[in-house]
């Protein structure tokens, strides 16, 4: 529990996976800025991280659908800590696919939270990290972004778009010494998935969050969470589209 001075920003720290990753950093004595949609939630997470050993935790309120406001919060956090070693962007919601099919506005809103809002934060963060010439930007994507499926293609489109954006950003920032880590969780037992039938592929948020932590610390480019989704998605991506379109997935 020796403070190691590591500075970590977690956007969407109230999500179950991000909370667990933040805990791993807290336990090693890191300094953290955590953001959540409401001050009560941010403060609840911050208090937990303090008890677990974080050297310092600040909670800020950030709504990713407020693009200008979000950028201002990033600026505020950056100034407060004089930069970050790691930024983890974990904000996101699982939209109701059927509602998105019936109502275009719902689909747009889902893309706004899961893609546009994250891109709005990634741009200033990339510039700041690029100027610093070090550090790591990590983003929670999803296996759903690897291939569009009828059951959740709106969410998949947002996460898939994010995947492409991060590929390019990784390529751009590589020479300046900044790592970009794309995390692709599969099924995780969180409040987001509490309405789903939980088969054997589900893992706990705790396990997923610790896997995210390890992937960031190892500066992996793309990490499936947990690892066994890599071969599964390799197969899913390899199925020819003329076959895939007939499947009920």
């Amino acid at each position: 529990m020796r403070p190691d001075g590591l500075r970590v920003l977690v956007v969407g720290a109230s999500s179950a996976i991000a909370t667990e990753t933040a805990r791993a950093y807290a336990e090693r004595g890191a300094r953290l800025v955590v953001t959540a949609r409401t001050p009560e939630r941010g403060e609840a997470v911050a208090a937990d991280l303090r008890v677990r050993g974080a050297a310092e935790v600040r909670a800020l309120t950030l709504d990713v659908t407020d693009h200008a406001g979000g950028t201002a919060v990033i600026d505020q956090a950056w100034t407060a800590f004089g930069g970050f070693d790691v930024a983890l962007l974990a904000a996101g919601v699982l939209p109701d696919q059927l509602r998105c099919e019936a109502d275009g506005a719902a689909a747009v809103a889902a893309l706004d939270v899961n893609l546009v809002g994250i891109v709005a934060l990634l741009t200033p963060l990339a510039n700041r990290f690029g100027a610093a010439g070090r550090g790591c930007i990590a983003v929670i994507g999803s296996v759903a972004g690897d291939r569009g499926r009828q059951s959740n293609y709106v969410y998949g489109a947002a996460k898939g778009g994010l995947d492409r954006f991060l590929q390019g950003l990784r390529n751009r920032l590589h020479r300046s010494g900044v790592a970009v880590v794309t995390l692709k969780p599969g099924f995780v037992d969180t409040p987001m998935t509490s309405a789903m039938d939980q088969g054997p592929l589900f893992v706990s948020a705790r396990r997923a969050g610790r896997a995210v932590y390890r992937a960031i610390e190892r500066r992996r480019d793309v990490a499936y969470v947990p690892w066994f989704w890599r071969p599964i998605m390799l197969v899913v991506r390899a199925i020819p589209e003329r076959v895939f379109k007939r499947l009920r997935l």
């Binding site: 409401t38 009560e40 939630r41 609840a44 037992d189 409040p191 509490s194 939980q198």
Partner: peptide, 25 residues
């Protein structure tokens, strides 16, 4: 939905709904 069982796995019971309580606030 995940299984909501007791430790002895007897008796079986099925809730009509499950509501996550996530925030004390």
């Amino acid at each position: 939905m995940r299984a909501y069982r007791s430790w002895g796995r007897y008796p079986e019971a099925t809730p009509a709904a499950v509501v996550p309580v996530v925030w004390r606030s």
